[in-house]
Design a protein around this nucleic acid. Structure first.
Lengths: 167, 167
DNA sequence: CTAAACTTTCAATAATTATTGAAAGTTTGT
DNA sequence: ACAAACTTTCAATAATTATTGAAAGTTTAG
């Protein structure tokens, strides 16, 4: 496997993985491209490499910036904007984990809490609904806490966590 | 909030969360419905509750069975088939985590390994590709191991893990 | 201030993914 | 063996989601 082939494989694999986990393909691929680039890239660069439109590139770069994993680099003497992604894989994972927790998990935990707090009218089905949503709520809360804990012990959080669990 | 409203909210929230994480809405909703049901449900029951077609129900039930979180219950004296889901929230999470690891994470780890093993031709870009995909590979491998570790210390794995990390 | 260089927005369109429904397939009771 | 009861399959269709591209917007150099 030569460089170009390997690069294309990486970008497309990353795109597919993204799709599988609910992340838009272009967004994942832009991030992948920046991740292996040796220098910040302009919108033109990204459009050319990935063969996607200007609009698509612009919108997805914005989303990546909203997620906090891509930043605009202003290069002296250059009119256009350049972009780069967090290069440290652990920082990257931290950002993503924290954002998904904040945007997606926390709100669901809130809903589960509300649902599991409905008045118990002593019918079997109400009891079951309360019991099961409460169990889900508790699990989600613990898992979320656990994840944030793992992700917050920098640096090398992940290896540290693994060792702790192996003890 | 009354029972019916709470139930509908639960099912729709679960469906949306599924969508966000790359799981088809009907599949998530069927699982949600079974999860709070006091007894196994037939295909008719599910179709009526969720207002989805027979074909859709059949296909998604099959997928849920492939994932190992829904089982067919043969009720004596009944011709039709009934379905129920794993009711223990922790078992449920274990199944899902293990399946996603097996189907989605492990294959990507393999690809990352291949890519990071290309011959180093000493150009800067090749060095960067190798370095970054190797870092991603190592992270993914450790994270996957960590997750399987957490999920394998039953029962009450999740609380146990949390305590270990808090120490 | 103006025009060139660049970015963003968004309605239109394309691509993908989910859903339907009816025909084909299967199982079971008699 | 037959037919009723039930499930699966899959081509057609609908719904959703992603992408384009051109017009509008913004910034900067002169």
């Amino acid at each position: 496997m030569k460089y170009q082939e390997a690069k294309e494989k990486f970008i497309s694999t990353w795109g597919s993985l993204g799709t599988l986990w609910g992340i838009n393909k272009a967004m994942a691929q832009i991030q992948a491209l920046l991740f292996i680039s040796t220098k910040p890239l302009s919108m033109e660069d990204i459009m050319d490499e990935l063969k996607i439109s200007r609009g698509n590139t612009s919108m997805n770069l914005r989303q990546l910036m909203d997620w906090g994993i891509v930043t605009k680099e202003l290069i002296p003497g250059e009119r256009k904007e350049f972009f780069s992604t967090e290069k440290d894989v652990q920082e990257l994972a931290r950002h993503i984990a924290k954002e998904r927790s904040r945007r997606e998990i926390k709100p669901v935990i809130k809903v589960l809490k509300d649902i599991s707090s409905i008045k118990d009218d002593n019918t079997e089905k109400t009891k079951e609904l309360i019991k099961q949503t409460k169990a889900l709520h508790d699990l989600a809360e613990t898992a979320d806490l656990l994840m944030n804990k793992i992700v917050n012990q920098e640096p090398n959080w992940i290896t540290k966590s693994l060792f702790k669990l192996l003890k």
